[in-house]
């Protein structure tokens, strides 16, 4: 659609800009301020330049948290994407079942993140949880997410899949519904198998929504905080300390605002680069759909 050229449209943006100034620009400048200063005492600060950045970039715990974060996000995507598509394919196309499926799938998305952590804490505890007790007593495997790093990871993966696969499924379902019926009729006439229909019709048609789902899931899992905070608190040891958890520990626990500021900006820069890729892909997906 051709848009009107008019720079006066900026006036429409004034309310948004005021709010975003207050909620993004001023805080971000404060972080920049922290990251280049050493606060010795209240009111007594020394300019230290890039020292905090150099310290943080060499911090082994930051490196560990970063790799852990990439591993976590990668695993999450590997499980959630195929599973979400499978669910979307299995969902009914009409009737009361559609409403039922949509409502059920949306339910985990609307549960507060700390409640998600609580639900799973109650569910996997070896003493009172169904999952924990089943594995420990009925299968005879000693499973304890508070002591063993692997168990903590398994629990977190289960929780993440439980929490966010519905989003992928809902997006994939919306993509599937947008495919015109004639494509299926053509496939039927050609005698295509359901696997071929999936591979050559449904999957290419879903490319747009699936790209969006992939990127959204990647970004959100990269920022995960509340669920592991409630479930494992970043433990055992540092086994589930992801970037956000480490940052909050640094900022509020030890109150090292200098290093925390530098860390924040490094973190933000990573997000910015990822976000830029996201935006470019999104623009191109939109163009591809129109032609």
């Amino acid at each position: 659609m051709n848009k009107w050229e008019n720079n006066k449209a900026w006036f429409f943006l004034i309310p948004v800009l005021i709010f975003v100034c207050f909620s993004a620009i001023i805080p971000l400048m404060t972080v920049v301020n922290y990251s280049v200063q050493d606060i010795l005492a209240p009111g007594k600060t020394v300019f230290v330049g890039t020292e905090w950045y150099r310290i943080m970039l060499r911090d082994p715990r930051l490196h560990e948290a970063l790799w852990r974060q990439f591993l976590f996000s990668g695993l999450v995507l590997l499980i959630e994407m195929p599973l979400g598509v499978l669910i979307a394919l299995a969902m009914p196309k009409k009737g009361w079942g559609v409403s039922f499926c949509l409502v059920t799938l949306a339910l985990p998305l609307l549960i507060p993140w700390n409640t998600i952590g609580t639900i799973w804490m109650i569910f996997v505890r070896p003493d009172i949880g169904l999952f924990g007790a089943a594995i420990n007593e009925w299968l005879g495997i000693a499973f304890d997410h508070t002591r063993k790093p692997l168990d903590a990871w398994i629990t977190l993966m289960f929780m993440e899949v439980w929490h966010w696969t519905p989003l992928v499924a809902l997006l994939a379902y919306a993509g599937l519904r947008a495919i015109p019926e004639v494509y299926y009729q053509a496939a039927k006439i050609d005698g295509a198998s359901s696997w071929a229909t999936f591979l050559y019709i449904q999957l290419p048609k879903m490319r747009g929504v699936l790209t969006i789902a992939l990127l959204l899931r990647f970004m959100d899992s990269f920022l995960i905080y509340a669920e592991p905070f409630v479930l494992t608190g970043g433990g055992p040891g540092n086994a589930t300390t992801f970037l956000s958890i480490y940052l909050v520990k640094l900022a509020t626990g030890q109150f090292d605002v200098g290093p925390a500021g530098a860390f924040s900006l490094i973190y933000f820069l990573i997000i910015l680069v990822l976000c830029f890729i996201f935006y470019q892909v999104l623009q191109n997906v939109g163009k591809g759909a129109k032609t």
Partner: peptide
């Protein structure tokens, strides 16, 4: 990330 904006 919300954690970045927490302190400011």
């Amino acid at each position: 990330p919300a954690a970045v904006f927490l302190l400011p």
